[in-house]
Design a protein around this nucleic acid. Structure first.
Length: 429
DNA sequence: TGAAAGTCAATAGA
DNA sequence: TCTATTGACTTTCA
């Protein structure tokens, strides 16, 4: 998908004028966007700027002067691989430092409010055909969309992570310390997993409010901390561990993540499985340590992250698998189970059920294959009809129903419990 | 302790 | 052969 020349340089299918920064004649639009932000937005994004700062970059952050050279493009391969895998698009390059991302399956849209949104329906939004990244010699990273192909050519959607004044007029810059590949990787993950949610349409302010902080650990891990967010969340701020510097582990621990877009995640997993012809049984047993049927249900009826309890671990295993580069994802599927846990950076999940305890009827003979009871159509229709009236029949009523339909009261109880849960599922989705 | 959550695993269906 | 459905079991939670 990426276009790398064999000598390590980068093919440049795009004309040189495309590598130039886009013009910003539509600055009034952007100013309006800035006005839409909370009053103290810029203070939360970064400390208020002083004039001296732009004259003396060291005042921005002590970290910014550590290394003035650009991040080698070779390093960016792994960083953007996750982005490519996630959005299933293509990155091409122009000049030495500019990258373009485009996807045939997905579009990036911008709503009139200035919100950055992810959509698969091009009719809903003014669609941006490309998402562009650029990394200049000062290690500033820009991410911007260009809809010049179908809209006025000054209509850009930008945000920039920089330590120098932005060429785009947002009224101020989103300032972060010098980017390392770890930082960029982490930023990508946050953008993908937290902010590109359909329920919680992200906006640029969300992204801008992430600060990069150095953890006081000997490992070269950094953490993205969200000090506050205009998106209302019931959970504490999000925090994601980035890929280690050797690229060996892109995993996130359960206590490091406060939100995963499970719907989006499941869609990605399903596409990935289809593309690489991974059977549900294989993925379920190898990656999740769960059964095929469980995976099928999870993929088709993803539960909202905030409603999950112990089940978060299963989604997190999907997430951590997807966060790996493609070659590693495929390799994990071939690994022994213990190595899979290690590769995902997660301990073996507690078995959902101790097989030896399985089934009352099997206790006497564990080798006996259980036959599944199936309600007759009359039994089912009656149970469903009652469910429409009363989702939670009393014990007495359940006994009456059981007697009437010649069923075990336990079967009736199970029916209503399953029905409530599965109806709730569909409602939430 | 009852209900909900998480899941298994048989089997229906494509 | 693979996925979707679903009755029932185990674990967790309030």
């Amino acid at each position: 998908m990426m276009s790398w020349a064999t000598d390590g340089t980068i093919n440049s299918p795009i004309q040189s004028n495309e590598s130039q920064q886009p013009c910003t004649s539509n600055s009034s639009r952007k100013r309006k966007f800035v006005e839409d932000l909370p009053e103290n937005f810029l203070d939360t994004v970064c400390p208020p700027k002083s004039k001296a700062r732009s004259e003396d970059p060291q005042q921005i952050s002590p970290m910014t002067m550590e290394n003035q050279k650009a991040i080698p493009l070779s390093k960016l391969t792994s960083i953007f691989q996750s982005f490519i895998n996630f959005f299933r698009g293509e990155i091409t390059f122009s000049g030495n430092n500019s990258m373009h991302f485009s996807s045939s399956e997905h579009a990036f849209g911008r709503e009139p409010s200035g919100q950055l949104s992810y959509t698969e329906d091009r009719d809903d939004y003014q669609c941006l055909k490309e998402m562009k990244f650029s990394m200049n010699s000062q290690n500033n990273m820009s991410l911007f969309g260009d809809d010049s192909n179908n809209q006025a050519n000054d209509d850009y959607l930008n945000f920039e992570l920089s330590r120098t004044p932005s060429p785009f007029d947002f009224g101020d810059d989103l300032m972060i310390p010098e980017l390392s590949s770890d930082d960029v990787r982490a930023i990508s993950q946050v953008v993908l997993t937290q902010n590109w949610s359909e329920e919680q349409k992200p906006n640029i302010a969300d992204i801008g409010e992430f600060e990069v902080t150095q953890k006081s650990t000997s490992r070269l891990r950094k953490e993205l901390v969200q000090p506050s967010s205009p998106v209302k969340r019931s959970k504490p701020p999000h925090s994601v561990a980035a890929q280690s510097s050797d690229g060996s582990n892109a995993s996130v621990k359960l206590d490091e993540v406060s939100y995963i877009d499970t719907k989006n995640l499941c869609e990605r997993i399903a596409i990935e499985m289809k593309d690489h012809k991974i059977a549900q049984k294989t993925f379920a047993e190898k990656i999740l340590c769960r059964s095929q049927g469980t995976l099928s249900d999870l993929l088709n009826n993803p539960k909202p992250w905030d409603n999950l309890k112990t089940g978060k671990t299963t989604y997190l295993r999907m997430f951590n698998w997807l966060a790996q580069p493609l070659s590693r994802r495929m390799a994990i599927l071939e690994m022994d189970i213990d190595d899979v846990h290690e590769a995902l950076g997660m301990s073996a999940p507690v078995p959902a059920r101790n097989a030896s305890k399985r089934s009352k009827s099997m206790k006497s003979d564990p080798d006996t294959k259980r036959t599944r009871f199936v309600f007759t159509s009359i039994q089912k229709e009656t149970l469903e009809a009652i469910f429409k009236e009363t989702e939670r029949p009393s014990r007495e009523m359940q006994e009456t129903i059981a007697n009437h339909l010649k069923l075990d009261v336990e079967s009736v109880y199970n029916f209503y419990m399953n029905a409530r849960r599965r109806k709730l599922h569909k409602k939430k989705n």
